[in-house]
Amino acid sequence: MKTNRVTLITLGVKDLNRARAFYEAIGWEPSNVQDEVVFYDMNGMKFGFYTLEGLAKDTRKPVEELKTGAMTLAQCFPTEADVDAAFDKALAAGATEIARPEKVFWGGYSGYIADPDGHLWEYAMNPFWEMDEDGHLT
Rank of each mutant, 00 (worst) to 15 (best):
I26Q: 08
M131N: 03
T10S: 04
L52C: 13
W121C: 07
E130P: 09
I98K: 02
V63I: 15
T79D: 04
G107K: 05
K67R: 09
T138M: 11
G48C: 04
L91S: 15
T59D: 07
E29F: 02
V104T: 05
I113L: 05
N32M: 11
I9H: 08
V83L: 02
K67Y: 03
M42V: 13
S31G: 14
L16W: 01
E80C: 08
L16R: 00
F105R: 13
I26E: 07
G44E: 07
I9R: 08
A90H: 05
F87S: 06
K2Q: 12
G118N: 06
Q34T: 08
T3L: 14
N17C: 09
Y50N: 02
F87Q: 04
T138G: 10
A19T: 07
P62L: 06
K2I: 11
H119Q: 11
D58Y: 06
Y123N: 09
A124N: 09
E80D: 10
T96D: 14
D88F: 07
L55H: 01
L55K: 01
D35Q: 14
F49P: 01
A21F: 03
H119G: 11
E122M: 08
A74P: 08
R100A: 06
N32Y: 03
Y40F: 15
G135H: 10
V13N: 03
N43Q: 12
N4R: 09
F47P: 02
T59F: 07
E80T: 09
A25W: 00
